[in-house]
Design a protein around this nucleic acid. Structure first.
Length: 739
DNA sequence: GCAAGAGGCATTTTT
DNA sequence: TGCCTCTTGC
């Protein structure tokens, strides 16, 4: 059990079991007591599960055991030593939304054009530095060009941002790690204390740790060197968030004498699924290399289905689910995994129509509803008066006449004195800089805050919350609202109170809200699971549907633009993760045209489909999807491959080449006009729109406005006003008003 | 100060 | 399509 260990565990090889068993054994054998062990996981859910499993094995609760995400553990340590980095221990944890809003203010203050350099991007740049463990000072040393943001202003912005966070007594996600790292570096005695205490470290999903997490672990493990990391380089899918596969690759170097264990027997999937997944990932270079095997009996092949469009695809998937459900398969054993979250919509619509219950994991989360965030802002204010972002959010919600003018005065006062808004408000109230009406209202609000804050000592926090929401007029605001969703919001507020009950203190609750964003309250219900591929990590289902395997969607063009060949490999790992989620059945699908932003665009099957071995898959497709040469619907589906030969739809190579060319031309959004030649099907335009006639004025997403010159079936000759005459398939234009 | 309407814009993945 | 921001008119 002692010494550094790296467990390379392929998908479905039972890596969680390894960790829990090891953990349980450590405790059971008495090698370590619960508080001497730290187990870090990637998600809160994984942490909860691991804890539950350990408790089940030991048959007793283990309260003092440290299991959590890097962020929650970081938060815990940081609360204890907050002063060391200039924070108070009740600091607020900002979510990415708060972060962006704050940066927006700073950008405006710095005179940086927010249109050109969006706050979102600034946040990404800063987060990236934090992921790499770089403080503002270190960034100044490392980044000569300043990261290219706003002509090199990013490092300065980063510095200002950090100072601002300090004033606000707040920390963002990155800080939870970075600050702790700083404390470890600057306060050796603190580090020593943790090094000494934590005799065993266990790390899950090691392939997804970023530099700052890595540095963290390395520091903590120095004393006892009992670190056990479990990971799979083939499942590294978070490089965009700063994860470094390199961490796993250099483990042996960092921890001399490390034992490396490979787990290669897969207990989850059927041989076909496994073979498909393995062949796919084999296209990647620079792997540590594992050969997954299974002794499960052979079963059905991986289904690959082509459909005409996204709607059809959703129908196919959901109908399949409905049928299988009728034959006794529980809904919770189905999952639909998509590349990007917006893709869930079509499936949701279809499932709603069929009346099949579903849940979107990682979708719109409870704590992201407006009314919940408002309510939480109130709570944040009374928990931590310096929280300007919370203050701004609700200072005029419900409307109480404190508009932009008042707020501006407040801001100026706060900024010139370098103090939080609430403090500035107190001071302003002593002057007559504010209009009398505003002054009274603001004064009332401020004393209300004080009053509610005082109540926290006298009554349960749930009651304070209820009282506060009533007295502030917040509940009343929604009661008076006649919008159809208002009752639902009131319901949510009630649910919030219920959620609060589970916590001892307001502070504990707020911590939970900021760190535990997942909602699996209803995880037990029998529902179809809908989520992104990233969200599916660590999960498994009997049946997995993988829609949208198309070029321009998966692999995702954005990823390729940013990361090139490496990103393609990461996309491929994502595909590998996707396939290996399934125990028994996988259906991959693609649509030949898809509506994106209300605009039709045709698509090609993903290159990843090409990479699946022919003998592990089975094709079928709608009539006319990828027909033979030429438009007009003449060909027959070449997509079914009766004898399992290699894929050979006509011009596949040219089509792919074309797709690549288009991408290089930075042209992909308006791909419409270019590759429609091979496409026969008319996309369903609004039937009421009718057919086009000569002389109609039409609009094309790429070519602009034009007049129809001739009509030949679905092919139109159009004289475009800007782009000249062109031949276009009618589905790519819409009728436009006469000029 | 506020509400409604118009216009512009974007959409990868998340602790 | 739907969200967010800006403008306009009261």
């Amino acid at each position: 059990m002692d010494g550094p260990v790296l467990v390379l565990a392929g998908a479905g090889t039972g890596k969680t079991r390894v960790l829990t068993t090891r953990l349980a054994h450590l405790l059971f054998s008495g090698k370590a007591s619960p508080h001497e062990v730290l187990a870090v996981t990637f998600t809160n859910k994984a942490a909860r599960e691991m804890k539950a499993r350990v408790e089940a094995v030991l048959n007793r609760p283990v309260e003092s055991l440290w299991i959590g995400t890097f962020h929650s553990v970081g938060a815990r340590i940081l609360r204890i030593h907050a002063e060391a980095v200039g924070l108070k221990s009740n600091f607020t944890i900002l979510n990415s939304d708060d972060q962006v809003r704050l940066l927006k203010q700073l950008l405006t203050a710095a005179g940086i054009d927010e249109k050109r350099w969006p706050a979102r991007l600034a946040a990404a740049v800063i987060n990236n530095w934090k992921d790499r463990g770089l403080t503002p000072d270190e960034v100044a040393k490392v980044e000569k060009g300043g990261g290219g943001f706003a002509g090199g202003k990013a490092p300065a912005l980063y510095k200002v941002y950090q100072e601002r966070l300090k004033t606000l007594n707040a920390a963002d996600f990155g800080d939870l790690l970075l600050h702790v790292l700083t404390i470890f570096k600057t306060h050796p005695e603190v580090l020593a204390q943790y090094q000494h205490r934590l005799r065993y470290l266990l790390v899950d999903e090691y392939q997804d740790t970023n530099v700052s997490q890595y540095l963290w672990l390395r520091l903590l493990a120095q004393q006892h060197k009992n670190i056990c990391c479990v990971g799979d380089d083939d499942q590294s899918i978070y490089s965009w968030r700063g994860a470094e596969v390199g961490n796993i690759l250099r483990f042996e170097k960092d921890f001399p004498g490390a034992k490396v264990v490979r787990l290669e027997q897969n207990y989850r999937s059927t041989p076909n699924i496994l073979a498909a997944a393995s062949a796919l990932i084999d296209h990647n270079t620079g792997r540590l290399g594992k050969t997954l095997w299974t002794d499960k009996p052979d079963a059905e092949k991986v289904q690959i289905k082509g459909t005409w469009d996204g709607t059809e695809e959703a129908r196919m998937v959901c109908d399949d689910i409905e049928n299988a459900h009728r034959t006794g398969h529980p809904l919770s054993e189905f999952s639909i995994l998509v590349r990007a979250s917006f893709q869930t919509r079509e499936f949701e619509e279809r499932l709603l129509t069929l009346g099949i219950p579903y849940r979107v994991i990682g979708g719109l989360r409870f704590y992201e509803h407006r009314e919940i965030r408002d309510a939480i802002a109130y709570l944040r204010i009374i928990a931590q008066p310096d929280d300007d972002l919370a203050f701004e959010r609700i200072v005029n919600v419900p409307k109480r006449g404190l508009g932009t003018a008042t707020l501006q005065t407040l801001h100026m006062a706060a900024r010139s004195a370098g103090i939080p808004l609430t403090l500035a408000a107190q001071q302003l109230l002593q002057t007559d800089d504010l209009r009398p009406a505003a002054r009274t209202t603001l004064g009332n609000l401020m004393s209300s805050f004080d009053r509610w804050r005082g109540m926290l000592d006298e009554m349960p926090h749930t009651e304070v919350t209820e009282l506060m929401l009533d007295e502030s007029g917040y509940t009343g605001m929604w009661q008076a609202d006649k919008a159809p969703d208002a009752p639902g919001r009131l319901e949510n507020l009630k649910e919030l109170i219920t959620a609060l009950e589970a916590f001892e203190s307001l502070g504990g609750f707020l911590e939970h809200v900021s760190l535990v964003m997942d909602n699996d309250a209803e995880a037990g219900d029998d529902k179809v699971n809908l989520m992104t591929l990233h969200g599916a990590k660590g999960l498994e289902f009997d049946t997995v549907f993988l829609p949208g395997w198309e070029e321009e969607l998966f692999p995702h063009p954005r990823a390729l633009d940013e990361g090139g060949a490496e990103a393609l490999e990461e996309e491929r790992r994502l595909a590998h993760v996707a396939l290996t989620r399934a125990r028994k059945w996988v259906t991959i699908s693609f649509a030949s045209s898809r509506r994106v932003f209300n605009q039709w665009r045709s698509a090609l099957p993903s290159r990843f489909i090409d990479e699946l071995p022919a003998d592990t898959v089975e094709f079928s497709s709608d009539q006319g999807v990828f027909p033979g040469r030429g438009a007009g619907g003449g060909g027959q589906p070449t997509f079914s491959r009766p004898n399992g030969s290699d894929l050979e739809w006509p011009d596949r190579k040219t089509q792919l080449a074309e797709a690549v060319r288009r991408r290089k031309g930075q042209d992909f959004v308006t791909s419409g006009g270019l590759i429609i030649e091979g496409k026969a099907k008319r996309v369903d335009r609004d039937p009421a729109e009718g057919d086009f006639a000569v002389g109609d004025r039409v609009f094309h997403q790429k070519f602009g406005y034009g007049l129809v010159a001739t009509v030949d079936g679905n092919r139109l000759h159009i004289a475009f006003e800007k782009s000249g005459p062109k031949k276009v398939i009618d589905s790519f234009v819409s009728k436009a008003p006469k000029s």
